[in-house]
């Protein structure tokens, strides 16, 4: 193959005075920041929606179901474009102008990715709560807990433990999904990848490096949550005795 391998280029200076490897590191930083912030949004909102979908209140269930249907059936990139280019036009002028001029890109991107992921988390939280025997709720109510307290002290602590493996894979997915935010101007890892290819044409080297970086992010996340899983496991359940 007449491809010219050159690993040295990472230490060459780019136009902005930084070296190319520093572009990679800065991209890695933004990817981590966007992903973790979106994950926080998604966990919070996803939990609320997931709980709503298991309550006896019809209208709460309907809101939760509609949200999940809406956000799961539109591609992520389209959702991000809606938040960036459509929503500012639909809201009152004042807010629209503020969104376009003063609101940092990163906030919109994090909210967009977070709301998208929340639909997935809501599915999992719901299935975790539904996996519990009905008696758990009744036992809580019999102890004099309010409906909310049965969630807080009885059902959610178990539900989260049950769905932790699924949440782990969703948390690993969010790093991959965060790559899509390049399309709305976030200078994350994929953006830098694309930019370095345009500047240097060293496709293979940078592909190897960026791929390894994504591997590493997913791996670290996986190990961290495996640790949480180990620390929070419930003795007596199948998952509580063995497993990884």
């Amino acid at each position: 193959m007449n491809y010219h391998w050159d690993w040295q280029f990472f230490f060459q200076e780019a136009d902005d005075g930084l070296k190319y490897y520093e572009w990679v590191i800065s991209g890695l930083g933004w990817t981590t920041a966007v992903s973790l912030a979106s994950l926080a949004v998604a966990l919070l909102l996803g939990s609320v929606l997931g709980v709503m979908r298991t309550t006896p209140k019809r209208w709460l269930v309907a809101i939760g179901d509609t949200y999940v249907d809406l956000f799961r059936n539109i591609p992520l990139i389209v959702q991000l474009f809606l938040w960036f280019f459509v929503v500012p036009e639909l809201v009152p002028d004042k807010i629209g102008i503020w969104m376009k001029q003063d609101l940092p890109y990163i906030v919109t991107a994090v909210v967009g990715l977070g709301l998208y992921t929340a639909a997935r988390i809501a599915e999992q939280v719901k299935s975790g709560i539904n996996a519990l025997p009905r008696g758990q709720r009744f036992a809580g109510l019999a102890l004099g807990f309010t409906e909310w307290q049965t969630y807080r002290y009885v059902r959610l602590p178990m539900a989260y433990r049950i769905v932790l493996p699924a949440l782990t894979s969703e948390s690993m997915n969010i790093f991959k999904n965060s790559a899509v935010t390049y399309a709305v101007g976030i200078l994350e890892l994929y953006f830098q990848y694309k930019q370095i290819i345009e500047k240097t044409s060293q496709v293979l080297e940078i592909t190897i490096v960026v791929t390894m970086a994504y591997f590493m992010l997913a791996f670290v996340m996986n190990r961290m949550l495996a640790f949480v899983e180990k620390r929070t496991r419930v003795p007596g359940l199948i998952s509580g005795t063995g497993g990884k």
């Binding site: 991959k176 790559a179 899509v180 694309k194 960026v210 791929t211 994504y214 591997f215």
Partner: peptide
């Protein structure tokens, strides 16, 4: 399953 799809799309297109 560990790499972002957008990256694969671009990498394959170039490689």
């Amino acid at each position: 399953r560990s790499v972002p799809l957008v990256q694969v799309i671009l990498a394959v297109y170039l490689i």
